[in-house]
Nucleic acid binder design. Structure first.
Lengths: 162, 162
DNA sequence: ATAGATGCAAATATTTTGCCGCCAG
DNA sequence: CTGGCGGCAAAATATTTGCATCTAT
């Protein structure tokens, strides 16, 4: 019952577990949602992102492929994905400003553990977390659709520096 | 090991557990931080708030007591309290827009359970949550300073309506 | 006396909206 | 063809900064 250290480690080294590339595109197609050139571009980037994306970075990457792609389209596409439960919106404890970060929603929730010193974000899965959600669903009589745990602290390296 | 349903239930009916009124003021005084008229006003409001406060509401309440008190002072004071670990900043899953909510940090972390239908927020403490934090601290070798769990779903009443 | 806080205005950052022409299906 | 979508500009919302003045200690 130990933590299963996730396949993903973040801030520059996230390995996206849930991505057969094209997963998001398939999901939307399956729901009969129109796939435009811009959406394909954004979906591909989100699906294969090696790190947590914010709007700024997502826009930059998208404009590499398609310079006319507008920031508003980024917001509208993220909103679409959120409404369909295909991406999660995180703030990662506001490590840098008040921007949000986005990641594809995988088959299993995970916890974000952020170092407030160096900004590294680790993702971990935990059986305890699953049990906690079950307990809350039962005791609060709530049908859970989203569960987010963000933990901040200082990693070993940053503790030594301080 | 059941959930201990918290003393606080939110959105209009939060009972603040950690408030001997004056707690925040004492904390700042103890740290040799200058107490201005404006700060006293804000601290009193935060310390005795029956619900989660956002900047807008906090400003309104403060201006009742002191009409010149500026919005910027609200931001600066909240920032001060955050830096000293005396309040927590929540987004409550962005129930209403992207604003943040603030609450005094009590002796024990709690989980926010929000109904995405009616917006009610319950606060619950859980031994499982405490264990989860310990597990992560150990397995990730991180010294935890802040831990936030926000859970969204639909309460029994809202499920019946749907 | 003086370091640090506030108020005010303006700048910045972030997100949303209106409208019109365009394109996927 | 046509309803939904994207681009552009502008608005709305949220937060931060510069600076002169004031105040807690």
């Amino acid at each position: 019952m130990a933590l299963s250290p996730s396949h993903r480690v973040s801030s520059g080294e996230r390995i996206n577990i849930s991505s057969e590339p094209g997963r998001l595109e398939n999901e939307l197609a399956r729901r009969g949602i129109r796939l435009t050139r811009q959406r394909r571009t954004l979906l591909r980037i989100i699906d294969t992102a090696p790190e947590h994306l914010n709007v700024e970075v997502l826009l930059e990457k998208a404009q590499h492929a398609d310079p006319r792609l507008n920031r508003v389209t980024v917001y509208r596409t993220l909103d679409l994905l959120k409404r369909h439960g295909l991406v999660d919106e995180l703030d990662l404890l506001h490590l840098r400003g008040h921007q949000h970060f986005y990641e594809t929603r995988g088959p299993r929730d995970h916890i974000h553990v952020a170092c407030l010193g160096c900004g590294k974000v680790r993702e971990v899965e935990s059986e305890l977390f699953d049990r906690l959600k079950q307990q809350i669903a039962r005791d609060c009589d709530v049908e859970i659709t989203v569960a987010r745990t963000e933990i901040g602290g200082y990693c070993a390296a940053c503790r030594r520096k301080a």
